[in-house]
Nucleic acid binder design. Structure first.
Lengths: 224, 224
DNA sequence: CCGTCTTGCGTACATTGTACGCCTTGCGTA
DNA sequence: TACGCAAGGCGTACAATGTACGCAAGACGG
């Protein structure tokens, strides 16, 4: 059944591949995650990977599942609102741990166990709070979409691609902002300061709070 | 100065390239949009494209800008809330017109004029409604993130890749749902019906309404 | 000791983006 | 009218990538 590998080198496995993939991903971004590069990182031939992974696509699924597994959902604290806040924040932080993969995660959600666990928790909190199924589903989706959008935006905004682009894009953004015609984009110009001043955390929390306020109102008015 | 092309074939241009790119994109998805395929569609050699586009990346930027230009933002109707609703809905619908490009658009936002116009409008509505700059920025971001998340989710959910996958993924989703262990995912199981029953439009509108409710409360309480 | 199963791998190929340089075309100018 | 030239289309070529195929080496059961 279970073969024992040569003693001088521990055998390949999906786990080891996943770990190396995350490493490469964080270092070189999604485009840098090639089969050969990954194999090199593992000190292994490129084709060896295919014994444990059917496809590059399969590899990416593995990465997504790994990231989701890595982001743990906090336990309940009692209140539905604080629970949802905690879940959403944890999800955002967790997904931002591997910025190169945000596109993957937001694109391939809903397939494996990892995503389902978060949905299960969220639905559980909502239904326990008294939301009916339809509203709970909508609220869950809205929360997920908000997190997905935020994560994507933040990952891209700081330099979607690789390290160096980061500073470049930010400067580019500022310059572009300053170069906008005042008469055509007055509000952008006026709010530009606030735009760069607001921290990503604060902006996310504000949006999240507003959304939860909204659902709280629904519940209070019995429309849920 | 301006050369006249041969009469039998109108010359290449960014506009024509854009149109063809959208066509290919809608037909074959993002992965199907290769330089050669695009050139073929235009009845032209692959390298000819590079006279008008520096990169594939540049081409994708062109596509994004084209899609944004295509999605027109509705004019003001008077109320800030209905305005924001209209803008968000229009954005969602507009971006969903080319499902293969949702990843692009949500990833490359904030670069060109197209995205900025929507932000300008949104900020204008918010600031005119009495929101301070910081809150307006946060609200704009939340709205954008919600739209981005929804668009991505819907595009991926109906078959992120190409036509055939659509039915496959949906069936896969249902099957996966039914196969979930009852004791581990009770809420998912219970809400599964509602999950597939709720239309994407309704779900989006519900989330949007809740978010706007939240900001309305902020404004009413003077916290904006 | 021998088949056999597992797993790593070398080679090879199709597909992609794109650098380079040629060639045609039609204009402006002399 | 003739010339030269710039713009724009294109053929060839190459590097990088995903991956099919089949071989080889080791470990295990008999």
């Amino acid at each position: 059944m279970s073969r024992v590998p040569r003693a001088d080198r521990l055998p390949l496995s999906r786990e080891r591949i996943l770990a190396a993939a995350l490493e490469v991903l964080d270092a070189d971004g999604l485009e840098g995650l090639t089969m050969r590069r990954l194999a090199d990182t593992l000190g292994v031939g490129a084709m060896s990977l295919y014994r444990h992974v059917t496809d590059r696509d399969d590899l990416l699924d593995l990465v997504v599942e790994g990231i989701l597994a890595e982001t743990e959902i906090p336990a309940s604290t009692g209140g539905w609102r604080t629970d949802l806040e905690a879940i959403a924040r944890a999800a955002r932080v967790g997904l931002l741990r591997h910025r190169g993969a945000t596109v993957l995660v937001t694109t391939r959600l809903g397939l494996g166990r990892g995503g389902l666990a978060a949905v299960e928790r969220t639905l559980g909190v909502l239904r326990a709070a008294g939301f009916d199924d339809a509203t709970a589903v909508a609220a869950n989706r809205a929360l997920g979409n908000l997190v997905a959008g935020a994560v994507l935006y933040e990952a891209a905004g700081l330099g979607g691609a690789q390290g160096d682009d980061r500073a470049r894009r930010r400067d580019q953004g500022r310059a572009l902002m300053a170069a906008l015609p005042e008469d055509e984009f007055p509000n952008l110009r006026a709010a530009a300061g606030a735009m760069f001043a607001v921290s990503a955390d604060a902006a996310f929390d504000a949006g999240l709070a507003a959304l939860l306020d909204g659902f709280e109102g629904l519940l209070a008015r019995g429309h849920a």
